[in-house]
Design a protein around this nucleic acid. Structure first.
Lengths: 197, 197
DNA sequence: GTAAATTGTATAAAAATTACACAAACCAAT
DNA sequence: ATTGGTTTGTGTAATTTTTATACAATTTAC
């Protein structure tokens, strides 16, 4: 049982129900939604780790436009969860478009439950990893990292992040790290002290 | 006519021939290769803007493994060109996998020549864009940017890049830029002077 | 078990950053 | 056009940081 928060969005109630049962066996929190318009509201309530998003809501249009729209909406948030898209129509163009827009994975109906769960876990792990490099041994909370968009980071924050990255990459070899950072070893120690690393 | 260097890799000679003819009408340099093993050698000779890479070389195995392998190989280079994958078999899983590994686009046989050319141009533009934000008004040549992998950048280089980014984003409003960077306006001027921006 | 490398820390000189300040230029809005 | 608020370069002195070196105490590699 993983302590992850999954949100499933699909307009097919039956599918939603079966997915909920499958996922609840593995993940602690599983929410479902038939109307994607409520996604922002739900995301504002609390962090979600993974969203499973159906590509086709409007039964008439099957080009996935609706899904792509919501994908973009979700991915534009600073706290964007991983998004795995679901589709019944094996359109490669659509899949590629979705990946370009930041989808983390793509599954097609009918799917294999085990594969789905694997994909969910691996999507979460991927997101975790990209955060780890920033968080390691730092006093920045995960929440902070998620909300600081790169464009709003100060030079100091960027410096801090870079230092953590390099030190980690070099297995805490300070001499090497200092060289790679282009500063004196003494200065590196100073900064570590200053930033509380 | 665009002055771009395109490399096409496919084991089907006939297809290679026809692609060459189509592309040469639009792009100045079009090279072809039947054996992907020569890719590294070709890339070492000079810069390539876009690679069109077939997913299936070995006629027996059609799972695209070969293509994915070479995709990874290419994308691991510091001077990696954009890569557009070609496949005859509309496997969404394969497409998604390829996008995850860094492919820039994906086309399926049989394709529309106009679409192909559009995709090539848009892939090049995308690559260009991601470089522009670094190069603007700086003394760093495009070549340099391509070869400095992010992990090898010194703090000073990162600082420089960030400063350029922020100033550009703020339309040269120095007061605002300094605030966003978390430094004094005076210091910002100092750094601009020091870095020759 | 030794040789080489790394660590943590010290010191003084050099360099950068800060907090202010000020006149000139710029812009928006009456 | 004139006014009031903002931005721009630049100056200065006090403060902080970085650098270059150095050294003994580990730690690492063979």
């Amino acid at each position: 049982m993983y302590d992850y928060h999954i949100l499933v969005i699909d307009d097919n109630q039956a599918l939603l129900q079966s997915l909920r049962i499958v996922l609840q066996a593995t993940f602690s929190k599983v929410a479902t939604l038939t109307n994607p318009q409520l996604v922002p509201a739900v995301l504002n309530c609390g962090p979600v780790d993974v969203i499973l998003l159906d590509m086709n809501f409007n039964n008439c249009k099957l080009d996935g436009e609706e899904g792509l729209f919501w994908l973009e909406k979700i991915k534009s948030r600073p706290d964007a969860p991983a998004v795995i898209l679901i589709t019944a129509f094996g359109d490669i163009g659509l899949a590629v478009e979705a990946m370009k827009k930041g989808a983390d994975d793509f599954i097609t109906k009918p799917w294999n439950n085990e594969t789905l769960i694997e994909k969910i876990i691996s999507a979460i792990n991927k997101k975790k990893e990209s955060l780890e490099s920033v968080n390691t041994a730092s006093n920045v909370s995960e929440k902070d990292v998620l909300t600081i968009s790169d464009t709003e980071m100060t030079l100091e924050e960027i410096e801090k992040k870079k230092i953590i990255d390099v030190i980690k990459k070099n297995n805490r070899n300070m001499t090497l790290s200092a060289m790679q950072l282009g500063i004196t070893r003494r200065t590196l120690y100073n900064k570590i002290e200053k930033y509380g690393l």
